[in-house]
């Protein structure tokens, strides 16, 4: 017997436990919290901590399927625009007299269709996802503007706005946080515990070998983009409920934060690697850093600059470390 599966512990697990990217994120998150605590004495207050999460749950919802898409070797630049389109479709149909919950379903369906179009163009027409979603990035946002112009839809019923503003019962736990937690666990299990998740990794690592192994690569890609559209639309529901309004430029530029969080979370931009816990940690890290900057009244534009830098550093750093490692080995 030559394969000793259980006799020898895997060295990759041992060193993996100590050198995991996730631990670095935990440390960074700790530092960010301490800095914030020093900036504001109220930061560590339980209510404040919970309320802070209001600010980044929408982006986080989009980041979950984005992690899948990047692991599978693609990218979706159209998420924020798709959010805008589906939210405006929801808001406009509500304004036109549709029941809010039916309007919401319509919005979710619109988001899924937007994602499906991306998926079909990528999987069937075999176009690079980058170009496809750059085009739909403009198209979907444009559709939002076409529908609503420079109008704003307000006056959502309070049962609806509770999705974005409310708390669970009498606890200090925000509803969006619960929604996110639910989906984070769902997507985490989907990625790490199911056959589908395994295939997503396999496709991202070697699409050709997967096709030669009878894996339905095209179907996986279409499912992932559709999921991405659906979750963008859901994020739009939460966001418009939180604002109590919807306008066509809603969530403008969110894709940057989302992609940054996914890459910072340890997902390889070239596909094949990454974990859900890492992505969730990175989402909270960016959320806390942004919140800290808000405490110091740093304007959003400048926050974006720092997030942009974070994105580039998050990609350069592992490459740099790998180069260092290979040099020391040689």
């Amino acid at each position: 017997m030559t394969v000793k599966a259980r006799a020898v512990p895997s060295p990759s697990i041992l060193s993996g436990l100590l050198l995991r990217w996730e631990w670095l994120l935990v440390v960074l998150l700790g530092i960010a919290c301490m800095v914030n605590a020093s900036l504001s004495p109220y930061f560590l207050d339980v209510h404040n901590l919970f309320d802070m999460t209001f600010h980044f749950m929408e982006r986080s919802l989009i980041a979950l399927p984005m992690a899948f898409i990047i692991i599978s070797g693609n990218i979706d630049l159209s998420v924020a625009s798709n959010l805008g389109m589906s939210t405006i479709i929801m808001a406009a149909s509500y304004k036109a007299g549709l029941n809010i919950w039916l309007a919401m379903l319509l919005g979710l369906a619109a988001g899924a269709v937007g994602g499906l179009i991306n998926g079909l163009l990528v999987a069937r027409v075999r176009l690079p996802s980058l170009v496809v979603t750059l085009g739909t990035y403009a198209l979907y946002r444009g559709v939002a503007f076409v529908i609503l112009g420079d109008l704003v839809v307000t006056g959502f019923p309070s049962s609806f706005t509770a999705i974005g503003q409310g708390y669970v019962g009498h606890t200090p736990i925000p509803v969006p946080l619960v929604i996110f937690a639910f989906f984070a666990v769902l997507f985490g299990l989907l990625l790490h515990r199911t056959a589908f998740g395994r295939l997503v990794y396999a496709v991202g690592n070697n699409e050709t070998a997967c096709r030669f192994s009878g894996v339905a690569v095209d179907r996986i890609r279409i499912i992932l983009f559709t999921l991405s559209g659906l979750m963008s639309a859901l994020a739009g529901v939460v966001l418009s409920a939180r604002f109590g309004s919807a306008r066509p430029n809603i969530a403008l530029g969110f894709e940057l934060d989302v992609i940054t969080a996914v890459v910072l979370g340890g997902v390889d931009i070239n596909g094949g690697q990454g974990t859900m816990p890492g992505v969730v940690l990175a989402l909270f890290l960016i959320g806390v850093v942004r919140y800290g900057m808000s405490l110091k009244n740093v304007p959003g534009q400048i926050q974006n600059t720092l997030i942009g830098m974070l994105l580039i550093v998050a990609i350069l750093l592992p490459q740099f470390l790998r180069r260092l490692a290979s040099r020391s080995r040689a």
């Binding site: 394969v3 990794y201 396999a202 690592n205 070697n206 050709t208 997967c210 030669f212 690697q273």
Partner: peptide, 11 residues
């Protein structure tokens, strides 16, 4: 290497 295996994944 290209068509038979997903090299970065385990046995």
């Amino acid at each position: 290497q290209q068509q038979g295996l997903v090299l970065p994944m385990d046995i």
